[in-house]
Computed example of a mutant assay.
Amino acid sequence: MGGEGSMMHAIKSLKENRSLLKKRKLQSKDDVYGKKNVTKLYLKKSTPRDIARIKKMMFIEREKEKRRVFYAAIATILIVFVLYLLLT
């Protein structure tokens, strides 16, 4: 009979997947919500110079994106117009 090997492989992979799922079960409420006062973030304080530099970079990226969208729109309009002229 054909197909026994593929069925055996499917059964083995299902068993392996189930064993992996059993390892991931949460044991207590602390596993889900975390323990209090343990997860503290220490963030670097930004200087006004850093903030100004980041704002400038964001402005430049926005302008580049606007140009890309504008050129893509112009190209799309031109392609549609050329196709219209060729098909009529």
Rank of each mutant, 00 (worst) to 15 (best):
M1T: 00
G2K: 01
G3K: 12
E4A: 12
E4P: 07
G5D: 11
G5L: 11
S6K: 03
H9R: 13
H9W: 07
A10W: 14
A10P: 12
I11V: 13
I11R: 08
K12H: 11
S13V: 12
R18M: 00
S19T: 02
L20K: 15
K22G: 00
K22A: 00
K22E: 04
K23F: 09
K23Y: 09
K25H: 02
K25R: 06
K25T: 03
L26H: 04
K29G: 12
D31C: 04
D31I: 00
Y33A: 05
G34E: 10
K35Q: 14
K35M: 13
K35H: 13
N37Y: 06
V38Q: 12
K40Y: 11
K40T: 12
K40D: 12
L41N: 14
S46N: 07
T47K: 11
R49D: 05
A52L: 12
R53E: 03
K56S: 09
M58P: 04
F59S: 03
I60K: 09
I60G: 06
R62V: 01
E65Y: 11
K66M: 00
K66I: 00
K66F: 03
R67N: 08
R67D: 05
R68G: 05
R68P: 02
R68A: 10
F70Y: 14
Y71W: 08
Y71M: 09
A72N: 13
A72R: 14
A73L: 14
I74K: 15
A75S: 10
V80Q: 15
F81L: 02
V82T: 05
V82K: 06
Y84M: 14
Y84P: 07
L86K: 11
L86Q: 09
L87F: 01
L87M: 03
L87W: 02
